[in-house]
Design a protein around this nucleic acid. Structure first.
Lengths: 252, 252
DNA sequence: CGCAGTGTTGAGACGCTTCAACTCACGTGG
DNA sequence: CCACGTGAGTTGAAGCGTCTCAACACTGCG
């Protein structure tokens, strides 16, 4: 690698992504607009970016990125949701994150994608050629800083997840997950104590390093203890946030 | 956060850090030189950087960074090794990475360090005020790109670790670890098949999400199977790399 | 109404942890 | 120089938490 060689730009936003709420004027139609959520206000660049964006529509289950493939693109989600995961040769799956509107993805090492990404529901995305995206970023320092900042948040989130996977019990994992969940999809805020579970039990299990059955049992346990109440399969109410936090910290 | 606000620059190099070997003219005396390993050759910047660096010497076990503290500094290791970890309230520890010469650390979110870092042996580091470091990077695009590249490698490494922690068995974890280990400390390359274990069993356990005893048992199992041979407590020889890889992939 | 996909619940198996005893390497002082 | 102490590592036996396998319940849809 020569000195003038640009490093590959490679991004992935994990759930805790942006780390803060973004202005509501964000438009879901194009990646250019979505970039605004990163804090970049270089409008000249945004205009230029718009010319680079290729809009994309995906059906549920559609594969967006395949681990090991060549990585010419960076993506930005403009609506819907995406799961990002890796697989072991024997089929076991670890979901690394759930991505929503405004999140970037396309993490690559040596021009190869390091994970697979699939749409969880009908989703729209914007696609950028990495080279063009990279060039744009180079000319827009605030944008690059914003991206760096964003990746830092991701790294912090990844480290929290390592702590969870390596050292927490099943109930602690679920409790932590339920506490974090509201921060995932900021574009669809829930009411106080209200938690949306837009993913299946299987996906939760593969995210928490557990099995479907264990997740189900732990949900039941929290329900029995009066910590949460199930509105439907995909919606629940946290009745005792204090107890949920206690569980997440291993105090129970 | 206003638009002109710079995001906090926040870095942590995980073991697989740089992803490639660096030129051997790297000098262990100062962070400025260490930066060269990132691929930046902007010598004007390097000269300026040198004026910003505060050298630091740490004894084994010394705490470099404490999780939750204010985060005014970014560090670069110029010799020795550092362990980076998080703790649960009940004391359980998850080691997120082992860092060596050339690695940066100082990951923060909202101006607060997100992990604790301790010297594993007598180590020297260079310390930079984050603000100064940040300003320098802003004026040195190749440097910033190099850092972005580096962080991308870290994120990829973090995702591999999530897969390991969430979905691999004890023997698979150890095998994966032994295969990765040679890439950690590139400044002290080992001979072919030779693996140095500069950390204790307890540290390996806390890195792999296991207990000391399990790590010990798995080492014994690999030894019994003729996959590895122990030279000493801290040095071993991989006799059957093929079998080790098979174990890491869960094929055995 | 019946089917398929998703979620729940129970019983038993399995793998890792826990607890405890023992070994080994190393440094220190008698 | 050896006895001793200490911290790290190993090994064994028992316990426990999660997984596996299997049956059943629920929901949505043709």
């Amino acid at each position: 690698m020569g000195a003038r060689n640009l490093p590959q730009l490679s991004l992935l936003s994990l759930p805790s992504g942006c780390g803060g709420r973004w202005p509501e004027q964000v438009c879901p139609s194009c990646g250019a607009a979505a970039m605004r959520i990163c804090g970049s206000t270089a409008d000249a660049s945004l205009a230029r970016l718009e010319t680079l964006a290729e809009p994309l529509m995906l059906e549920p289950g559609a594969v967006l990125i395949r681990e090991g493939d060549e990585a010419p693109y960076v993506f930005n989600i403009t609506s819907g949701s995406v799961r990002v995961f890796k697989r072991l040769p024997n089929g076991r799956r670890q979901i690394n994150g759930f991505l929503f509107r405004g999140d970037f993805l396309g993490l690559a090492v040596g021009n190869t994608y390091v994970f697979t990404a699939e749409a969880m529901e009908r989703s729209s995305l914007c696609r950028f050629r990495k080279a063009a995206f990279r060039a744009l970023i180079r000319d827009d320092p605030p944008l690059e800083h914003a991206l760096l900042n964003r990746i830092s948040h991701e790294l912090a989130a990844a480290q929290n997840q390592m702590l969870l996977l390596g050292r927490k019990t099943a109930i602690e994992r679920l409790a932590s997950f339920l506490l974090d969940l509201p921060n995932y999809d900021l574009s669809r805020p829930a009411g106080a104590g209200r938690v949306r579970l837009p993913m299946t039990r299987g996906e939760i299990a593969d995210y928490l390093g557990l099995t479907i059955e264990t997740v189900s049992r732990m949900v039941t346990r929290l329900k029995t203890q009066g910590v949460i109440r199930l509105i439907s399969q995909t919606d629940l109410l946290v009745e005792r946030p204090d107890l949920l936090r206690a569980h997440a910290n291993g105090d129970l």
